[in-house]
Simulated scan of single mutants.
Amino acid sequence: MREDDHVYLSLSEDQDDSRWAFGTGFEDPLHGVDTAVPDGVDAAELAALCLGLGDDALVAAQRLAEWCTRAPELEEEVALANIGLDLLGQARLLLTRAGQVDGSGRGEDDLAYLREPHDYRNVRLAELPNGDFAFSMARLLVFSAHRLAVFERLAAGHPDPVLRAVAAKGVKELAYHRQYAAEWVVRLGDGTDESHRRMQEGLDAIAPYVEELYRAADVRDEVEAVLAQVVEAAALTMPSAEPMAGDGRAGQHTPCLAPLLFEMQEVARALPGGRW
């Protein structure tokens, strides 16, 4: 495949070319931003939006962390770890904002470590077990394409300046996440018979969970245009599937979430209020 055929190059047009560990930088995206809830903004609705987006990022980051020591190559292990760190950084900002505006006074650690599975509001796509590398790339492509479209809208016009600032920072990160996933989907789909088979199976496996993303935030046209471009370049098909019953935003999750949270929360619950 020629370099100018690479679909991920066109996906990254007009985006910052920087790639690594945006979530670990020292620049504070909220420096100088007024944290008061603006007039006319419903605090409960704002808190729910931040909580859902924060939970999406937190759970997805935890799944990506599970690739450490398991990725096909060291380079991919580092890339996945950095993508996870980006999402963790987003989760911290969003959960902090949710706690600020919901009237509970809870901080990011309270929301991350002291809630039960039914209190989480992430989409169920994020919580599914990693499967093989092809499955994880299929999920990352769909997850990041949807999240990038949502963040672009939030950055462009949400009335809360804090959420706008968080989204503006996240757009740069998510553009790379989408690019990275698209590159691998094309590479595997347009590779050997075995890699093609696995990549198609990955897309088939996530298909029942895609519709839920649009219920959480309807950016269908933007996302489907991206997916169609990548899938065509990869010689794959984007399957249609009956949506899986349930709604993560309503606290209705798969059995996969509870074990993930148990592992993530174990130390914080065993040593409440612990400091390192």
Rank of each mutant, 00 (worst) to 15 (best):
H158C: 12
G131A: 05
D14H: 14
R187W: 10
D193N: 09
P29V: 04
P161Q: 11
E73Q: 10
D42T: 10
Q15S: 15
L11D: 02
I83M: 13
A48F: 11
G107C: 11
R220V: 04
D193A: 15
L80D: 00
F143H: 08
L174Q: 07
A98D: 03
Y176I: 04
L64C: 01
F143P: 00
R106M: 06
W276H: 07
L95C: 07
E77C: 04
V171G: 00
L174Y: 14
E77P: 04
V37P: 07
R275H: 14
R19C: 04
P159E: 07
V231R: 01
A71I: 08
R97C: 08
A241L: 01
L213C: 01
V186T: 15
A61R: 03
G189W: 14
R147G: 09
P29M: 11
E76V: 12
G191C: 10
E13P: 01
D4C: 06
G274H: 14
A234H: 04
E127W: 01
V150K: 01
L128W: 00
L174E: 12
E201N: 10
H253E: 03
P255Q: 04
V41P: 05
H196I: 11
L125I: 14
G40W: 08
D247K: 04
G84R: 05
Q62A: 14
A61L: 03
L163N: 11
G246F: 09
F26W: 15
R178P: 08
S195E: 12
V33H: 03
L140S: 05
V219I: 05
A112D: 00
Q200S: 07
D110G: 11
D14M: 06
G191F: 11
V166Y: 02
D218F: 13
D14N: 14
L58A: 13
V41I: 02
V78L: 14
K169C: 03
E194P: 03
M199E: 07
R19D: 01
G273L: 10
A168Y: 05
D204P: 05
M199G: 02
S104V: 08
G32W: 10
L114Y: 15
P243G: 02
D119E: 15
D193P: 14
L213K: 08
V226P: 06
R197P: 09
G202P: 14
L74E: 01
G273N: 09
S12W: 15
G157T: 06
A60D: 07
D28A: 06
L203K: 00
S144G: 12
R124K: 11
A60I: 00
A228G: 15
E212F: 05
G251E: 04
D119C: 12
P255R: 01
K169A: 13
A182M: 11
A205F: 13
L51H: 12
R115N: 02
G131T: 01
L271H: 15
